[in-house]
Structure formats: C-alpha cells, structure tokens
Amino acid sequence: MTRTRRFSPQAEAVLRALAADPSEWRYGYELGREVDLKAGSLYPILMRLADRGLLESSWEEAPVAGRPPRHLYRLTGAGLAVAAEVAAKAAARSAAEQDRPGTQGSLRGAW
C-alpha cells in the first residue's frame, strides 16, 4: 500500500507559485523570493517534488558571463494535476473554517 503524505504549507506555496504559469521555467532564487523561503528550505522541497515526478528541472542554457549556470524548474503534467488538487483542498479547508460556528465567516456565530 502506497502512503502519500500531505504537503507542507511551504511545499503547497511552491506548487501554487509554479502553477500560476506552468509552462514557464522558474529559477530557484525567484521562487524563494516569491514564496518567502530561504534556500535551505526551498531546495529540499524542490528536490522532493522532482523526485516524485512533479517537477522537471534543467540547467540554464546561456548563463550570464561570470555567473555559474542556474537550475530552472517547472511543473510536469502530474505536478500540475497535484497542484490543482492541493489548491482545491486548500479552498475546501478555507471554506470549512469560514463556516465553523464562532468564526468571522459564519453567520451562525455572528448573531
């Protein structure tokens, strides 16, 4: 039996950022700035996602002179499907929290 673990909030943020434009190759540094993760957290997430077949990676073809080539990342077809599933689950969790009595989004708790 295969056990799938839930993605961390940080991994979900990376998936969402990559899913915003799935055909676009993204640099790790750019992703880290967008999702507010330092390299020590971001790159292990990227490696795990790639190991699961959710990301493809490539080296920059024409690096700027004086700078080493950078790694690029984008979602695979499977990664895009997982990102959509993660987004749907997050939306369902958010809706459930808003509907809970005593929360701001609930009419039942507002009266």
Rank of each mutant, 00 (worst) to 15 (best):
V82P: 01
L75P: 09
A91Y: 12
R67L: 13
S94L: 04
V82Y: 00
E85G: 06
A90V: 12
V82L: 04
D99P: 02
E97I: 07
P69A: 09
L80M: 04
A96R: 15
A88Q: 15
V82M: 08
R100K: 13
T76A: 01
A87Q: 15
R93N: 07
A90I: 04
L75W: 05
A81E: 14
E85H: 08
G102E: 02
P68A: 10
A78S: 14
G102I: 01
T103S: 13
A84N: 15
V82S: 00
Y73P: 08
P69F: 13
L72G: 09
P101Q: 02
A95T: 09
E97C: 06
E97L: 12
A92D: 11
P101T: 02
A96H: 10
A81K: 11
A78K: 14
G77A: 13
S94A: 05
R70P: 08
Y73M: 03
A91S: 13
G102M: 01
S94W: 07
A83W: 00
L72I: 07
A96M: 10
R74H: 02
P69N: 07
S94I: 04
G77F: 06
A88H: 15
A87C: 05
A95L: 06
L75D: 11
Q98E: 15
E85V: 05
T76V: 02
A88C: 08
T76K: 02
Y73W: 06
A88M: 08
A92V: 08
A90D: 13
R67P: 04
L72P: 03
E85N: 06
A81I: 09
A87L: 08
A90Y: 05
R74T: 02
G77K: 10
P101V: 03
A81W: 09
P68R: 14
V86S: 06
P69Q: 09
R74Y: 03
S94M: 12
G77E: 12
A78R: 14
R70A: 12
G77D: 14
A87D: 15
E97N: 10
V82I: 06
G102T: 01
G79A: 00
Y73I: 05
A90C: 10
A96N: 11
A91G: 12
G102H: 02
R100F: 12
V86H: 05
P101S: 02
L72T: 08
R74L: 02
A83R: 00
E85I: 01
